[in-house]
Write a protein that binds this DNA or RNA. Structure first.
Length: 316
DNA sequence: AAGTCACACAACCGCATCATA
DNA sequence: TTATGATGCGGTTGTGTGACT
């Protein structure tokens, strides 16, 4: 640690000062906030470094800016949890943009990149824990062939409107193009598929799913030109019939680690309605209802061969 | 009541990019 | 053109709090 402890504040938090420049670190006091707010009122949200050079605060410009952007800005939704709609927006945009939190935050009024980042981080941890729990429980129940998996409460999200893109940059045009009609895949299914996606391919599917979604939308637009869509759904790879069959096999588990595994599911691999036919049973009327499919998923030993969730630093 | 855990939040750090002299 | 400082962004870590045991 380059700094030295000069003072203690509060119960446990320490206020640190840089050894050379008397740079204060740690939590902000109300008086400091006031100084910062007054500076912004006078000069606008810029010249952060001048705050220190003028001797107003012993904080770095970076620290001042961060405090303003993340906490003091008047248009922030402080203390308000992410709504279901906001959650879906983040999930959707993360799939499109990756970990571009600042960019994603621009679609969420009152939210900062830090908010979005923290939300996503918490979500990933939750999913990792679920994955771990599933893995642990499966190892003790591997003799069973099926298991009922209850979706965690945080995923029980009621249907909400997908994010609306009000401006019209090129990227947003792409976003608009990556849409589909809600008459074919309802919102509950979407959420379930998000769960499915996150459990099986945590943070790895975005490229494939974007590709697939684009292909799908192209074909859907040709098929349903009158439904020029206004809803943008999370970019979810829907299941092809082959997929549901694969789930019945232990081979599926073994193939999860195969980098070319997804290639077997050629686009457009979307379910046009709430049920899909099982291959090989096409002549019969044997279909799998999506609800049944999800509730029966995953097989008890599905996660046995899956590597632990990579840390964010290991993401591509 | 005390300990543990999960979660939300705040803030720092390192690096990249931009602006300007 | 280059050096330098300012700013922005993403990753990470530390702390407080509430729920649960």
């Amino acid at each position: 640690m380059s700094g030295v402890v000069r003072a203690m504040e509060g119960k446990r938090r320490m206020v640190l000062y840089d050894e050379v420049g008397e740079i204060k670190k740690g939590p902000w006091k109300a008086e400091e906030d006031e100084v910062l707010i007054n500076h912004v009122k006078k000069y606008g949200p810029r010249d952060w470094s001048s705050i220190r050079s003028k001797g107003l605060l012993h904080r770095t410009g970076k620290s001042c800016r961060l405090r303003w952007v993340n906490k003091l800005r008047p248009d922030l939704k402080t203390g308000v949890k992410f709504s279901a709609e906001e959650e879906r927006t983040v999930i959707d945009l993360q799939a499109q943009f990756g970990n571009k939190w600042a960019r994603i935050a621009t679609y969420l009024p009152g939210r900062t990149d830090n908010d979005v980042k923290n939300f996503w981080s918490s979500r990933q941890k939750r999913l990792a824990r679920i994955l771990q729990t599933s893995s642990a429980s499966s190892s003790t129940n591997s003799h069973k062939s099926t298991v009922q998996v209850q979706a965690p409460a945080f995923l029980d999200i009621s249907p909400v409107e997908a994010p609306k893109f009000s401006s019209s940059t090129d990227e947003e045009s792409v976003a608009k193009s990556q849409t589909c009609s809600s008459s074919h895949i309802d919102d509950n299914d979407t959420i379930k598929m998000v769960l499915f996606q996150d459990l099986v391919y945590p943070s790895t599917l975005t490229h494939e799913q974007n590709t697939l979604q684009l292909d799908y939308n192209t074909s859907q637009k040709k098929q349903f030109p009158e439904q020029e869509s206004h809803l943008s759904f999370p970019q979810i790879p829907q299941l092809q019939p082959d997929f549901s069959l694969a789930l019945e096999s232990q081979d599926f588990v073994n193939r999860l680690g195969d980098p070319n595994f997804l290639d077997e599911f050629e686009p457009p691999c979307f379910v046009p309605d709430r049920s899909c036919q099982i291959p090989g049973r096409a002549e019969s009327n044997d279909t799998v209802d999506l609800d049944t499919f999800i509730s029966d998923f995953p097989p008890i030993d599905l996660f046995d061969d899956i590597e632990p969730l990579p840390s964010p630093s290991e993401w591509p």
